[in-house]
Write a protein that binds this DNA or RNA. Structure first.
Lengths: 370, 370
DNA sequence: CTGTTAGCGCTTTCAG
DNA sequence: CTGAAAGCGCTAACAG
């Protein structure tokens, strides 16, 4: 028993399908009260549900918004996804989700799939990269995106423009001031941290990571500190954990050397000043912290640490993590809205969404008080 | 410049649209090598992307899987969503996401929207409820679901069947043994916990919560303990926080009374034995823990606490949370697969997926050792 | 204001 | 093995 169709409804109501369409699904022209009522009754007596595919085909638009994330289980993306959802709801659209693990090749496939479904717009979250191994993938992704835009699609990108994408019409970027914020974070930290800084970054070539690293170094330089050493690992918790392990070993070594055989536990109170770790995102920071802890080191006693993003789920972590708060939901919302805006013809200056701002948030993990 | 169509490709290749269709999109019949090659070339020289809407209309199926969650930013749902995503990928389908905050009315809308899009199957995650205020909504949801199934749709539900849904064909439930697991948790806890138990539950009528409460009480009874008092609040972090605040006050009072004016800080070592809190999910447990901490109480020193779910993002929380590990991703995967199975006609015993099992995981938060 | 007539792009009998 | 023709369900010009 297939779902009933508009034609059936029309027949039951004794009108033409066109009229039924006009009353059931919005149209500029309003049929007469009497007839409208009859149609409506027929419709719900049959349990009529319009076939969105057919509507889409006829109107060539789909009421769909495509969302591309690296990993929906990562709270960073989940928060953005929530924002996208909200914006989609405002536009009375549904969101189609694609998880790509950040591989440009998969992202390209996702874009193609969205294009095939005639998604009205596409939102891409997740760091762009310029790694050599992604070069080809990036080019293909850019080409796919261009084609999508040329065919009338709109795309909103979170963070950085996709490498190589010509800024064709319908292509919008929600810029996140990663570099500036990282610089500010560094500036604030230098006020209290006396020891060396170490950065735990993601793989080289990941824009988000690179920007934060660069910004942090800049902030350090401005404060007259020498540049931090940069440890590279995966852009997730286990990457942070690994790097944390390496740092823990180093801290212990330094302590052993510094205390020449004796054995106080408190690195922070020794000649060797405790290091301050900046992990380029919260999940990595949490991973690093876990590693230090597992090696018997304490934060902020033996080392201080800061992250980036201010992931909500991680706010109850102790010691509370110093970080940079990013309005993740808002970012998702804006990316979605900016993509839709062009859709509606509201061509206000190409990207009139208010700029994203973040907020340095110092908490216990970088406290240096006795 | 609209996307190019099959007809265009066919014309360019000098064949009929039918043939082009046969070579480009899978068909039982295989056109000749020579002609196939020509079509393929024409296709990608034009950058042809099949119009999924049109295909869907013609085949009346869409390659879409609808997923309904309360809140995609909640790590519990995010984990399930990841599993759904994976299963969808196996089936070469995309997932359509709907966030409903658990309101049956919204869920009904989501189901209707999915039905309109001719989703091949629908997965519903998130606790069902039998609260009086949801009664009407549940009935409508059930009706909508039934209609969807009757029209050939398949649905996979996580946890409990939707209230009032007739177990029509195509309706599958992935059962999570919440009650049993909660009972086991209680059993294990009674071995080490001497004080009273208190349960922080969600609103009455939420099945998941109710099951866990019931199971826990049963476990307690079996161990000869008297039933735990049940505090009700919202089924999320802030609900846990609120309840935690109330408990903190109570613990402090008890301590003051117990120590009649003197003032040791250690409730655990007093005559009043420390209470053991069971929060029906991890996020609530974390909230409660945060509340206790903010009131100057320490875990497990002043009270012990356990949660449920073993949310991955929360595993770095300290003290490590005792909980029941649930294979969330797997649950999502199974719900998706079981819904699809019927689709493929593989009618193996109505629900031949392996049953979900959980694992009691005792960690620091319930340690009672000195 | 309503009904009729064409498609939207693709699949799928059914002939050739 | 290929092509022609008839829709899938709905919308949007046109007529009436």
């Amino acid at each position: 028993m297939a779902a009933s169709t508009l034609t059936e409804v029309a027949r039951l109501a004794g009108v033409s399908p066109a009229t039924a369409s006009r009353v059931l699904n919005g149209s500029a022209r309003k049929p007469g009260q009497d007839i409208a009522e009859r149609v409506r009754q027929a419709a719900d007596s049959l349990g009529y549900i319009p076939n969105a595919q057919a509507q889409g085909l006829a109107k060539s638009s789909s009421g769909l918004i495509g969302l591309i994330v690296h990993d929906i289980a990562d709270p960073y993306f989940a928060a953005i996804a929530l924002g996208v959802q909200e914006a989609a709801r405002e536009q009375r659209k549904m969101v189609l989700l694609a998880t790509t693990a950040g591989a440009p090749a998969d992202e390209k496939e996702a874009v193609a799939a969205f294009a095939a479904r005639r998604a009205d717009s596409i939102v891409i979250a997740g760091s762009r990269s310029s790694r050599p191994e992604d070069k080809e993938g990036n080019a293909e992704l850019a080409a796919e995106l261009d084609r999508y835009c040329r065919n009338g699609g709109h795309v909103g990108v979170v963070g950085h423009p996709v490498v190589g994408a010509t800024a064709a019409g319908g292509y919008h970027v929600v810029t996140v001031p990663n570099e500036e914020l990282a610089a500010s974070l560094a500036a604030e930290l230098t006020a209290s941290q006396e020891g060396d800084f170490v950065i735990i970054g993601g793989p080289e070539g990941l824009f988000t990571s690179d920007d934060r690293v660069r910004g942090f170094q800049r902030g350090l330089a401005k404060a007259g500190r020498h540049p931090a050493e940069v440890l590279r690992s995966a852009f997730n918790r286990s990457g942070g954990y690994e790097a944390g392990l390496a740092l823990a070993a180093r801290i212990k070594d330094a302590r052993r050397d510094g205390s020449s055989g004796a054995g106080s536990e408190r690195a922070g109170s020794k000649g060797t000043k405790r290091i301050c770790i900046f992990a380029v995102n919260d999940v990595m920071a949490i991973g690093a912290a876990a590693a230090l802890r597992s090696e018997g080191l304490r934060i902020p006693r033996d080392a201080t640490i800061a992250g980036f993003d201010d992931i909500e789920t991680l706010r109850d972590f102790r010691p509370a993590l110093s970080t940079v708060r990013l309005p993740l939901e808002e970012i998702g919302r804006q990316a979605t809205r900016s993509a839709a805006r062009a859709d509606a013809g509201t061509d206000d200056a190409e990207g009139a969404t208010s700029p994203i701002s973040g907020q340095i948030t110092l908490r216990r993990s970088t406290e240096t008080a006795a």
